[in-house]
Design a protein around this nucleic acid. Structure first.
Length: 591
DNA sequence: CGGACAAGCTGA
DNA sequence: CAGCTTGTCCGG
């Protein structure tokens, strides 16, 4: 039994009382006495030979069904692959509420096998996509992947299960609904865990569905496989498509990753299938590049072109305008309006930012209540430390400030959306962080106010993440057929990301990006892990004896680099963890 | 993780 | 040396 206790990653042996024998198997959730207390756990092996000289205790009780043996094995692999506890994965794979009996197996709701309707997908693409075990289908952002999902699961025999993983709960619900209307029995995770375990249905859900029960798994489909929502942010930092692909592989089932802009790791994993150039162009929105190199830097985030677009917002039928700026708050970098000194933290010297108080009236950049350091949290009265003036020039504005300025420039109310707040999302003009692209409908124009921030972000994945933003925006405006458009304000108009979106050809970026990452030693040419926490130092010292490269930035965090995951994960698993908090992020999302 | 127990510190 | 804190070990 593996206890469900943080800090214990080791199985213990117990006796299964004969009256429980028929209810206990690999994966079963049980309660056990451990060290004088009752804890939950999973059966991870059955009929083992216990070590000699240990008095075995019996299982206290069976607390319900758990993942099947295939998923228990996969959890063991994942614990190695992402340097985490097996129990963390088994917890994700277990039902949210105890399940004691399974419902009847999924049955077709009538309607028979699905045929025909493949939407705007070309017949050849579907055939090609289904011909191999590991396939990446590059489907443009505004094209509906549902026909591909149907085609992929159509091959599953009655009684076999297929797995469909999507990045959001809303998309999962919509997909489940469409499948049901086409006569398919569906289990929508996480609630329908028991239906999934009963088998014979399509299992649909977000990333945790990669761990759902799926007896006789026959196919796996991952939609928007590039989406960061497929990756768990907390350690272990597992990724749903990677886990699902491994699961399919172990089972001998085909796995299909669908994405408008596949990540390099996916391209290295499987064979790429693309639609025709014509079809791909239809699915990406026209892109207008606003070249800001020759503009007066004092015009800030607002080019003449943007001001014209903002003033015209809402005049046409679908001409809502959404402006994207990935900076929350009011001002992230301030210079004194009187003496020009930067507002910096007295404790850590980081930049002081204005706090975002939503109710405040629009107007010039006057004093708020306090300035806060985003690095160390220190707060200070809102006056210049050098001269005592209370007026700031905002060198790096956030969305709250941009909303005020846009209202003044466009002469109309402006909505504001971030992951925390949403006000006036129905307004003809809305500004927000990238969250806005998930929260608004019926948009004619998406403007990226500071795209260089995305292009120049200090992350090795910055380029493909920037392209993913343009793909998202293309979808929001409905591609070329949706008569929408994307405006990109940039001082890097020839950048490969912009070039790829302009030509509706993500392959242009992938080729250049792969070469660059290979030269710099970034994935997928290598495998990385980020190690942090109070006991990280001792841990990375232990890694020295292994064939990995350890790079310290002197900030208590270390980057571990290896030629591949096999070497990396073997090393991470071999080094004992000293007591104390340690965070190991394999494939670090923010490196 | 959290209980058990040992070693270390304090004040009388 | 009792009474308490802090640290280390280990679980079937």
């Amino acid at each position: 039994m593996l206890p469900d206790v943080a800090g214990i990653d080791r199985p213990f042996d117990y006796v299964v009382p004969s009256e429980l024998d028929d209810r206990v198997g690999v994966g079963t959730r049980v309660r056990i006495s451990l060290h004088g207390r009752r804890v939950g756990g999973w059966v991870v092996a059955d009929r083992v030979t216990p070590p000699e000289g240990v008095a075995l205790r019996p299982i206290a009780r069976v607390s319900g069904l758990g993942p099947g043996p295939d998923v228990v094995e996969l959890a063991g692999w994942a614990a190695w692959r992402w340097a985490g506890r097996t129990g963390a994965f088994l917890a994700t794979a277990s039902p949210p509420r105890a399940v004691h009996d399974l419902p009847a197996r999924g049955r077709r709701a009538g309607g028979g096998p699905v045929s025909g309707n493949r939407g705007d997908l070309e017949e050849g693409v579907v055939a090609e996509a289904l011909a191999q075990a590991r396939t990446v289908v590059r489907l443009p952002p505004a094209s509906d992947p549902f026909p591909l999902v149907e085609a992929a699961i159509a091959g599953s025999a009655d009684g076999a299960a297929a797995l469909v993983i999507v990045p959001s709960q809303e998309w999962a619900a919509r997909t489940a609904d469409r499948l049901r209307r086409r006569g398919r029995p569906v289990a929508l995770l996480p609630d329908a865990w028991a239906d999934a375990a009963a088998g014979g249905c399509v299992v649909v859900g977000t990333r945790s569905a990669a761990w759902a029960p799926a007896p006789d798994l026959s196919a796996v489909v991952v939609l928007d496989a590039h989406d960061e929502a497929h990756g768990e942010e907390r350690a272990p930092t597992w990724n749903a498509w990677v886990a699902a692909a491994e699961r399919a592989e172990r089972r001998g089932a085909p796995c299909l990753l669908v994405s408008p802009c596949p990540v390099l790791e996916a391209l290295a994993w499987g064979r790429l299938v693309t639609v025709s150039r014509r079809a791909e162009r239809q699915g990406w929105a026209p892109l207008e590049v606003v070249d800001r190199r020759k503009e007066d830097p004092r015009s800030g985030l607002f080019s003449e072109r943007l001001v014209a677009v903002a003033r015209g917002a809402g005049t046409g039928a679908a001409d809502r305008v959404v402006c994207v700026l990935n900076r929350t708050g009011r001002g992230r970098l301030l210079a004194c309006g009187a003496c020009g000194e930067l507002a910096r933290c007295e404790r850590c010297e980081g930049p002081l930012a204005q706090t975002d108080s939503p109710g405040r009236p629009p107007g010039p950049a006057v004093a708020t209540d306090v300035l806060r350091c985003r690095r160390c949290g220190e707060e200070r009265p809102d006056v210049c430390a050098a001269c005592g003036a209370r007026r700031w020039r905002v060198l790096r504005p956030g969305v709250a400030r941009v909303r005020e300025e846009l209202e003044a420039l466009a002469g109309k109310p402006v909505g504001e959306v971030s992951s925390q707040t949403a006000e006036g999302t129905d307004a003809p003009l809305v500004v927000g962080t990238e969250a806005v692209l998930h929260r608004v409908r019926a948009v004619g124009t998406v403007v990226f106010l500071d795209f260089d921030q995305e292009l120049l972000a200090p992350r090795y994945r910055a380029a493909e993440q920037a392209l993913a933003l343009l793909a998202r925006a293309s979808r929001v405006v409905g591609g070329r057929t949706g008569r929408g458009r994307i405006l990109v304000q940039t001082r890097l108009p020839g950048n490969e990301v912009i070039d790829a979106a302009l030509h509706a050809d993500p392959g242009r970026l992938a080729a250049a990006d792969a070469e660059r990452r290979s030269a710099l030693g970034f994935p997928p040419a290598t495998a990385l892990a980020l190690v942090s926490g109070p006991s990280a130092g001792a841990y990375v010292a232990g890694l020295e004896a292994h064939p990995v490269e350890v790079l310290g930035a002197g900030d208590g965090r270390w980057l571990v680099r290896a030629p591949d995951h096999r070497v990396l994960c073997d090393a991470l698993a071999a080094v004992p963890r000293s007591p104390g908090r340690l965070r190991v992020e394999v494939d670090p999302p923010r490196a």
